[in-house]
Amino acid sequence: MSWQSALACWFLRRQFRPQTLKPDINVGRARALTAKRVWVPSVPRGWVLREQYRPDDAPLRGEWLEPSRTGGAVTDVAPQRTILYLHGGGYYFCSPQSHRSLVFELAKRAGARTFSLDYRLAPEHRFPAALEDAVAAWRRLLADGTPAGSIVIAGDSAGGGLALATLVALRDAGDPMPAGAVLFSPWTDLAATGDTIRSNDGRDPMFSGPAIVRAAQVYLGDAAPTHPYASPLYADLRGLPPLFMQAGETEVLLDDTRRVAAKAREAGVQVECEIWPKMPHVWHIFAPFIPEAGAALDRAAAFVNQVTSVRAAQSSSETSIV
């Protein structure tokens, strides 16, 4: 454990976790705190940030990070590689802006143009609004000419659970599937039945165990917490593309990762699951300050490159046969 990650855990334990001990969730305060960014990452050299926040930009409302076509550094970006990113934040706070440090670093490492979706948030827009937005964004990407096999859906925390739920919904609807999915500390069980909700309560520097149920209620409203589109742990995972999952071993949500990984493998899905010692929830967002964040993102980027290359080779082979 680096001194940088130890410092991040200390900060989270002092500044973030006490908020999760309160009996009620203050949505406005959570949004205000995440909007006050101590550090704003610069757009990487050789890349362009294109913001799409007008109402008529929906369903692709959010931010594109793309390689520059007008000078700057030469960027090794495969034009056929795209990441659809879904940010975390319990479905009720955070945004593409709050997650730029993670998204920028992942995009650079993967050499992929990346769209960070600004999906609707609860409690103004409860389940299944976020899922509807993610599915609509996927379909617009395909309608705009992006091949399904060139896309990886990625997300962290609630966004990780949303990414997995999106795969399930796309499969159920008979839509084309992406090359794979990257899930950072995904929140996959809004019923909060994992053993680590209790066993890691106090070890997790970011969340208290009981806070998980309270956050779920903000998003779910009257919906069942075991609905497979809200909690994909309870979904049939057969037929999904390869999954890459990472979580910290002290997280209260650790079992949300471990149980999905086990269930997906049983369903015949290719799964890479990494449990990192002493890492806080979604430590990737502390890139580039935490060495472990960069190392984890390197691993995720390698997965993105691998699965999109495999799908590209498959498409080329099928075309040559025809």
Rank of each mutant, 00 (worst) to 15 (best):
E272K: 03
Y229L: 15
E272W: 08
L237E: 00
L237P: 01
P242T: 10
L243D: 00
D222Q: 12
P232K: 03
L220V: 04
A261M: 07
D236A: 07
T250L: 15
Q217E: 15
P225R: 04
L254P: 11
D236N: 13
E251G: 09
E272T: 14
A267I: 03
A262F: 05
E274M: 09
T250S: 12
V218Y: 13
A247V: 13
A261F: 08
A267D: 06
A264N: 03
S231K: 07
T257R: 07
R258W: 12
A224H: 13
T226L: 06
Y219W: 10
L220H: 02
Q217W: 09
A235Y: 04
Q246N: 06
P232I: 00
R238H: 13
V271I: 02
P225L: 04
H227P: 06
G268E: 00
A267Y: 00
Y234K: 10
G221F: 03
T226H: 10
Q246W: 08
L233P: 00
F244T: 00
E272Q: 11
R265H: 04
D256W: 06
G248C: 13
L254W: 14
D222I: 05
P228C: 12
A230T: 05
P228N: 08
G248Y: 00
D222N: 11
A267P: 03
S231F: 03
S231Y: 05
K263G: 02
L237W: 00
E251C: 14
Y229P: 01
C273I: 04
V252C: 10
D222Y: 01
K263W: 01
Q217M: 12
F244V: 00
P241N: 09
L253F: 11
R258E: 14
D222G: 05
T250E: 14
G221T: 07
S231R: 09
V269Y: 00
Q246D: 06
E251V: 10
D256S: 12
H227N: 14
G248T: 06
V252P: 02
A224G: 02
P242R: 10
D256F: 07
D256Y: 06
K263A: 09
G248Q: 13
A264V: 01
L233Y: 04
R265V: 08
A223S: 11
L237D: 01
M245C: 09
D256M: 12
T226P: 04
E249A: 15
